[in-house]
Nucleic acid binder design. Structure first.
Length: 669
DNA sequence: GAGAGTTGAATTTTT
DNA sequence: TTCAACTCTC
């Protein structure tokens, strides 16, 4: 194997048992994984189809695939599984849906769909105002990630509120079952259940996936831990790679302690720590080490680099957020025109999405091309969701959630009252809403006109369903045409342009379906294709196309796994980084890791910025410098171009509380 | 069912 | 401050 350091080499070659690789930022972890895959195939006699690499994001999976094909020159990697946890879960369920209490063609609800479903259950409840659907959804998600079912959740309830949450969880689950649908969390949870109750199925999968590699292991939740544990069985043929210092998703159920837990569950676990960093200059790395030393650690590691010391990282103090953006913009222009740095090599990283705004404005004013990552994903767009709902309903007539979304889109004069009666009737007869539309008994509850409208809708779906059996993609094209969806978009858009863009999105979706159908999904139905599309981030690809010569604006979370020669880490203030709520909830360590992730993205140069005052909800707030700046060795920072902090600066900082008082007294209008 | 007005909430968000 | 979601009215 070429160019591996001794630790990396050991990580690649160790195959005698379970292996944990603690890979610090920039220590070449992807390289270790891809080389290990090659090694397993070329030297250890594994067939590619017996190897499975799991990632969290599609992007990471794609990258891994690319790196692998570069490295192995296309040789014998066919049949290899490189997928996200969720895609693997979907495939497990799809193979034998009946073992998971599902029927073929089941629907996959995204987080937004799940939330609307909960909203339905919450509707009319007296406490609906006190409980947000989003909060309930999060709670349910937590339960699922912790492998807790509704009954168990009920047992654990401490008070009435918990009990209410648990009962909503039970309602929600009942709906999903009735709709023949699963949510994202079920893609992990349901397979673990399936494997518990059907050992033969587990054995079959264990035989199929004989060596498992898991990336970003610190981000696994309990359900994912359980799934990996089941699949790897007792011999523990796996390599997991992770970094406890880069765990920034605990708020979402990630359990970084899963790293340490492995040592308990697999006493023979071998641990290899990768500490050589190939990314950042020595000075940048020094700051990163100094910062993260303030966190408690289960595994001690200290990154080192034999790269150049590099330039001194700087701190720019700014008046307010407009000034901050202005200064960063002029720094960027300087880099571009005085130092010939490509815009694409520059990133501006911040804590919250809303911080992007002043930067967007200022960069635009200076004609600096930028690229904002995040934003509404392709599948969150209303028109795409509508089209997806049509596909889902055609694939799965029991998907009431999809039915409700589109029964009156475009308008068919089917209002809430009609739907309520339909729902009541369907519930009584234990049939889906779509089936209810054509049920003869319905006429007793609704006028002939309403019945006719529902009937017409059902007929529309039924005819396209038949068509879809022979020509799934063509049937969808025909459907979008028949309902004259483009006319509906034109009616509802503010401008012709917007309508066209939206229609374009729908066309893109159809094109993706077409591609899938010609590709890996030739023999599969619409349901499988639409589930896969839901899991894939089509937007990701568009982002990359748009990338290139642009300054990247993104949150610290979005920056994980990326690197840039020039990094601006902005908004280094108390209550922002660390964020206010993290101070309250005492999750400072995760905030520190977030700052650590930001620092370690930088290759050559790093610039922090902070403001003295900032607007919050329209009100001016006097800010304090982030404690994380205090945790960095002052000598290793250049404060406002003065190499290190001068006595004047210290004095000025001492005065900051005075300034704050003043600020409070004469807040600008 | 659409439009106006009110209210309340504003971290992060891999799938 | 801004924006989205919800309510109320026509």
């Amino acid at each position: 194997m070429s160019g591996l350091n001794p630790r990396q080499h050991a990580a690649v070659h160790y195959t005698n048992g379970p292996l944990l690789v603690l890979a610090g930022a920039g220590s070449g972890k992807t390289r270790v994984i891809t080389q290990k895959i090659t090694h397993l195939i070329a030297e250890r006699g594994f067939q590619p189809r017996h190897i499975c690499a799991l990632t969290f994001t599609n992007k990471a999976a794609r990258e891994m695939r690319e790196r692998l094909s570069q490295q192995s020159k296309g040789a014998q990697t066919r049949g290899l599984t490189i997928s996200t946890f969720h895609t693997l879960g979907l495939n497990i369920l799809r193979r034998t849906p009946e073992l998971a209490d599902l029927r073929r063609g089941f629907s996959l609800l995204d987080a937004q769909d799940a939330e609307s479903l909960i909203k339905e259950h919450l509707r009319g409840a007296p406490e609906a105002h006190a409980i947000g659907a989003a909060a309930v959804q999060q709670r349910i998600s937590r339960w699922k990630n912790d492998l807790i079912n509704p009954a168990h959740a009920m047992q654990l309830a401490q008070d009435d509120f918990d009990a209410r949450m648990a009962s909503l969880y039970a309602d929600y689950e009942r709906s999903l079952r009735a709709y023949n649908a699963v949510d994202f969390d079920d893609l992990i949870l349901a397979p673990t259940r399936l494997f518990q109750t059907h050992p033969a199925s587990l054995q079959a999968w264990q035989g199929r996936l004989r060596y498992l590699l898991v990336d970003e292991y610190q981000d696994t939740n309990n359900a994912q831990y359980a799934l990996v544990r089941q699949l790897t069985g007792t011999d523990g043929a796996f390599t997991v790679v992770g970094d406890d210092d880069q765990s920034i998703y605990a708020w979402r159920g990630a359990r970084p302690e899963n790293l340490a837990r492995l040592q308990v569950d697999y006493p023979s676990l071998k641990v290899i720590i990768l500490e050589q960093n190939y990314r950042s200059s020595a000075r940048i790395l020094g700051l990163a080490n100094a910062l993260i030393a303030n966190n408690r650690h289960v595994f001690e590691k200290r990154l080192w680099s034999d790269l150049e010391p590099g330039s001194l990282p700087r701190v720019l103090r700014c008046k307010d957020e407009a000034h901050e953006a202005e200064r960063v913009a002029s720094e960027i222009l300087h880099l571009k025109f005085a130092e010939n740095v490509s815009f694409g090599h520059i990133a501006v990283l911040f804590r919250g999405n809303y911080q992007a705004r002043p930067f967007e404005k200022t960069l635009r004013e200076h004609n600096i091309p930028y690229f904002l990552s995040g934003g509404t994903s392709f599948f969150a767009r209303a028109e795409v969701k509508d089209a997806m709902a049509y596909v889902r309903l055609i694939a799965n007539p029991e998907d009431d959630a999809a039915f409700l979304r589109i029964v009156n889109t475009p308008r068919r004069e089917i209002g809430p009252t009609t739907l309520e009666r339909l729902a009541e009737h369907s519930r009584e007869h234990a049939i889906s809403l779509l089936a209810g539309c054509t049920d003869p008994g319905l006429a007793a509850h609704l006028s002939a006109r309403q019945c006719a409208r529902l009937d017409a809708f059902a007929a529309l779906i039924a005819s396209h369903r038949r068509h879809s059996e022979t020509d799934p993609v063509g049937s969808m094209r025909a459907l979008i045409d028949t309902i004259d969806y483009s006319a509906w978009l034109r009616e509802n858009a503010s401008s012709q342009q917007v309508a066209e863009r939206r229609y374009e999105n729908v066309a893109d979706l159809l094109e993706w379906l077409g591609k899938l159908h010609k590709g890996d999904f030739q023999h599969q139905g619409l349901a499988d294709m639409v589930s896969h599309l839901t899991l894939m981030d089509v937007l990701d690809r568009q982002e990359e196309d748009a990338g290139g010569e642009r300054v990247h604006l993104m949150t610290l979370h979005a920056a994980k796994g990326l690197e840039f020669p020039q990094v601006f880490l902005v908004g280094m203030e108390e209550e922002l980084l660390p964020h206010r709520s993290s101070i309250e909830e005492d999750t400072i360590e995760e905030e520190r890791r977030l700052a650590y992730v930001g620092i370690t993205r930088a290759r050559e140069a790093l610039t922090f910025t902070l403001t003295r005052r900032r607007r919050r909800y329209g009100e001016w707030i006097v800010t304090e410098p982030s404690r994380f700046l205090d945790e960095l060795p002052a000598k290793q920072l250049d404060w406002d171009g003065e190499r290190s902090e001068t006595p004047e600066h210290r004095k000025a900082r001492g005065l900051s509380h005075l300034r704050m008082l003043k600020g409070l007294l004469n807040t600008p209008p």
